[in-house]
Amino acid sequence: MIAILEAEGLSKQFHVGEWVVDALQDVDFQVEKNEFVAIMGPSGSGKSTLLHLLGALDQASAGRITLQGQSLSELSDDECTLLRRRKLGFVFQFFNLLPSLSAAENVALPLLLDGVRPSEAMERARELLVLVDLEARQAHRPDQLSGGEQQRTAIARALASKPQLLLADEPTGNLDRGSGQRLLGILRHACDEQGQTVLVVTHDPYAASFADRVVFLLDGRVEKELSGSSLTLKNIADTAATLEQAGNTENRSG
């Protein structure tokens, strides 16, 4: 297998007044090409921070991240922007579609920002909306779409520039069970049928069960990984519950 994304000795510190918070501590992490990885952990375990660092949205305090052999820390702000535009796709919990653009225009947005011809970008957007079963809703604005439809539009947008890595932060966090299941099916399909690599941060063991591998974080460190035959919904839920409890105990004693 080829590692598309590698993180070595990754640390991130936040300064809050006089306090220094270690959000991530010496994390080593790899994502293989065409792999679907879920990151789980209790609140404050560093999941989102890790996603932000891997997505070139934030800079690590120490350590190194390479995406297809390219070190992110050596990139300038503009180069990071171009990397996000061309090689990464993002899905956020709160859909984050531009309210004034139609579904198709929202999907085409990263391509338009990259200077792709509007007709070409819109054609690609229409293809992707077919993929997420929103062909009939392409002219609708976000306020005319349901939560599930908005999130499927957001996935289509994340796939618009054919990114090497798709990052999703709690993508089902704001959806009902049915919509969440449908969305996870789309992500799984993107991975299986389109060779997409997917990295999802989630609280939900059911969402994590769609992944090939689940990485558990606790207090900014990789605590455990589940993959292969051990990756059952029960195992994921038990591990998540154990870590949640450990986190709570630590907080109380701390």
Binding site: T81, L82, R85, F90, L109, L113, R157
Partner: peptide
């Protein structure tokens, strides 16, 4: 600001 941050996240440069 969320909207502009979103644009930045999906690849809009500061100049854009």
């Amino acid at each position: 600001s969320r909207e502009f941050s979103l644009l930045r996240a999906i690849g809009a440069t500061r100049r854009q």
